[in-house]
Design a protein around this nucleic acid. Structure first.
Lengths: 127, 127
DNA sequence: ATGACTGCAAAAGATTTGCATGTAG
DNA sequence: CTACATGCAAATCTTTTGCAGTCAT
């Protein structure tokens, strides 16, 4: 199935570009509707899934019941704020593969991992 | 709201006891039905949620679209097998709190984190 | 032309909830 | 008695899918 150009897909790609706020499909849908009032949520999902299958974006299942999307495909981890639900990037220098093999509990790979705690903002408020 | 005894809840607690296979609500429901043919999925969910609110079990959102439950409330991490979907316990000696603060990206706490890779079984098969 | 893409609406799957009834204290 | 718990079914919510029409190549 040879990929064909679609302005909807390009717009989705562009909306996501450079963002670090990890929007959900619904947020992207809302933004798309400004430019394409008739776009459907199904199209948004289909394109997000397609782009993540192509490896151009990441689809994150952070456990809040909604998928988040990340244009950054570099190795990095995610922190989910237990207070406000924000998903933020964290850079950890972990050699997880060796750590896990040490334990012989299995093999961690792909540098995909979710951590939970407080995001920068909520940690500062400290209430 | 003072907690009252319920044989269904006790049975659910008991079914979960000592297990390390992280069953889903549906699996627990299926097992409960052997003993209580008329139990409802709603009751299973309500009790699992209640028990996790009480801190007696853990409710895991591993990202496969289904919640898993873990009677082990000790500090430990989970590895989700990207091949077979199995959720297994992994013991890592990580000082995540300091690691995250080092980066000042936020504060990781609670020792709750999900890692992805291959479980012991799938790693051995190595195909 | 042909096959990919779209909008729309319906379907699917997991979890939650309302309500009438049952039961522990 | 009276609240909490249950079974049942309906509602919710997110994501997926079927289909007929549209558009890129």
């Amino acid at each position: 199935m040879a990929l064909k150009f679609s302005k909807q897909r390009e717009a989705i790609r562009k909306t996501l570009e450079g963002r670090t706020d990890h929007p959900t499909a619904d947020m992207i849908y809302a933004e798309m509707r400004k430019e394409f009032p008739r776009i459907s949520l199904g199209t948004v999902y289909r394109n997000l899934i397609l782009l993540s299958d192509l490896g151009e974006i990441q689809r994150l299942k952070v456990g809040d019941g909604v998928d988040h999307f990340d244009p950054n495909t570099d190795e990095h981890y995610h922190l989910i704020c237990e207070k406000c639900g924000a998903v933020s990037d964290i850079m950890l220098h972990l050699d997880l593969d060796s750590l896990a093999q040490e334990q012989s509990d299995g093999i961690i790979h792909g540098h995909k991992a979710y951590f939970y705690g407080l995001c920068k903002k909520c940690a500062e408020k400290a209430d």
